[in-house]
Write a protein that binds this DNA or RNA. Structure first.
Lengths: 187, 187
DNA sequence: TCTGTAAGGTGACCTACATCACTCTAAAGT
DNA sequence: ACTTTAGAGTGATGTAGGTCACCTTACAGA
């Protein structure tokens, strides 16, 4: 799986073998089973995960205990609670595994060290962050201007694989509509 | 106004006098009158602006010509269309002045040069970007879980100044509700 | 093998918000 | 000074989507 990480990083910056080996030495691997947590509310998140296998959801619980999905992530996506990870404050969200999963992860300290030592990696993360920001902007735009049906169609178009792996209840929550409404959208 | 920029940058990284002078040499100033554009749909955005005076809105027009506000920005905020600026693709949005404004701006080339030359500035922009991303995440969360009235109250609490400077029509658009609904929220 | 639980679908009803139409006021443009 | 335009409020009515209740199916665990 490690060559995939290299490939992924090299989409934004180029690396020598030595550089990649050095980067990789800052990562570790971990496996989690379906329903296990990566992050729980209240903890200070210490790791950023890169998914090599499986699928996770990140969500928060509102005052009524209702779950709101922030995002899904699967193979070759990064996942963590950035607010907690970046600011090192207690997390307000949960991240847990929708399937048995495998990850490469980097600790807060190693990420910081690597960014300080290797200007290239600082650039990589800066670019990732910019792209992440643009994606969030698009989602806001979609929440502002599109109806539930339109948001559903856009999601289906962009991530058809998601609909094979994730229950409609969770998709509904991601789109910000009720399960029942989602169920009625295609009629 | 330039000491305010220094102060702003030094909230995230520390600088010597020489370093700040060097950074500043990459910026230029510009004034715009109320109703003038910083960015128009279709152009490739070449500049990132730091507002020294005034207030702007960024928005896009949907298929029906309806305006949706993405964000407001005022003194000591950065503004540009990041999607266009970062990817150097044509912008989908407009940014225009709600009042007579003054800016410090940096060109795409200078920003890139400065980031490559000065690791500190790369770190500064990386941090800014992370914080921006966290703020967008919060807005999504708010659109998912809060009612129009709740979003109004949160905005009023967080940016009371905005309500002195910006028409309710624009606030309504930012919140994703109609003018009429906003007008009825406090009754 | 039985049973509890999660997933999905659907009907009946409710409500938050949109839309349209109109009014009043104040500021801007000529 | 006169007129146009933008901002803001409000009534009447329409509708997307929420909520509650109930049903079916499937699979996971004992």
């Amino acid at each position: 799986m490690k060559h995939l990480l290299r490939q992924h990083i090299e989409e934004l910056i180029s690396l020598t073998d030595e550089e990649f080996a050095y980067i990789l030495s800052h990562f570790e691997t971990v496996k989690k089973r379906k329903h296990q947590y990566l992050v729980q509310e209240g903890e200070i998140v210490k790791k950023e995960y890169w998914i090599t296998k499986g699928c996770v959801k990140s969500y928060f619980l509102d005052e009524n205990g209702k779950e709101h999905i922030l995002r899904f992530a699967m193979e070759q996506w990064w996942i963590t609670d950035y607010e907690s990870f970046v600011k090192q404050i207690p997390s307000k969200i949960y991240i847990d595994c929708l399937e048995d999963c495998e990850f490469l992860y980097i600790s807060f300290e190693n990420r910081d060290k690597l960014a300080a030592e290797m200007h290239k990696m600082e650039r990589f993360w800066a670019k990732k962050s910019k792209l992440g920001r643009i994606a969030l902007q698009k989602r806001i735009l979609s929440l502002l201007k599109n109806s539930a049906k339109e948001r559903y169609d856009l999601l289906l178009e962009q991530y058809p694989q998601l609909f094979q792996r994730v229950s409609k209840k969770l998709i509904a929550s991601y789109l910000g509509v009720s399960r029942e409404t989602l169920s009625r959208l295609n009629s």
